[in-house]
Each structure stands twice: as C-alpha cells, then as structure tokens.
C-alpha cells in the first residue's frame, strides 16, 4: 500500500480535529478533538519516518504521546474543577479573562 495514503488520512484526521476545536463548545469534546489532532500529527510523523527510512519521526511521535498524556492529566483536572465550580463544561462560559 502506498504510504502517501497514510498522509491523506493524517490530514483528514487533523482537519476534523481542528474543525472540532473551532466549532464545538463542550470542553470534553474539545479535548478529544485536540487529541485527534495530536494523533493525526503522530501518524504523519510515523509515515514520514517510514518514507525516509530513519527513526527520527518515530522518536518524535513518542515525545508527542508523552506530552499528550501529561496534557490530558492537567487538562482534565482543570475541566473537572471548572465543572465543579460553574456547573458547566461549555468553554464559552469561561470567558472571565477578557478585557
């Protein structure tokens, strides 16, 4: 199978994720969309690694996974605590930090 197809898939997933971040309001869904974008880029990295025949892309993909895991921990904690205080998971409600 042509490895370039994986890149198409990666672009598709990234676009879905990005569109989700821009249009959805629920913080959890937003979060999932971010994860989707991260994994899309992981897929692209691994594909490039394969295309070029070296391991750089794969190593960076590992890094991304570690960072994503840490981000999930922190992000979910924040979302939960916001939900507890404001009884809402909508990101549009958390708009106090504007001028």
């Amino acid at each position: 199978m042509n490895p370039v197809n994986y890149l198409y898939l990666s672009a598709l997933l990234f676009t879905i994720g990005a569109a989700g971040v821009l249009v959805r309001r629920n913080a959890i869904v937003l979060f999932m969309c971010v994860e989707l974008m991260l994994n899309a880029s992981n897929l692209a990295l691994v594909t490039f690694s394969r295309l070029h025949g070296n391991l750089d892309g794969q190593i960076i993909a590992f890094f991304t996974m570690v960072v994503a895991a840490a981000e999930v921990v922190v992000g979910l904690a924040i979302i939960v605590s916001i939900f507890r205080t404001r009884h809402s998971a909508s990101v549009d409600d958390s708009n106090l930090m504007k001028l």
Partner: peptide, 17 residues
C-alpha cells in the same frame, strides 16, 4: 484591538490557526 480578546476559546484557537 482589545475587542479581539472576547474571552471565547474558539476565537483564540482560530487566531492560532
């Protein structure tokens, strides 16, 4: 310029994109 800072995460994300 201040109006850009409307407090909506979506619009910030859009400007990042």
């Amino acid at each position: 310029l201040r109006r850009i800072q409307n407090g909506y995460v979506r619009s910030y994300a859009l400007s990042m994109f």
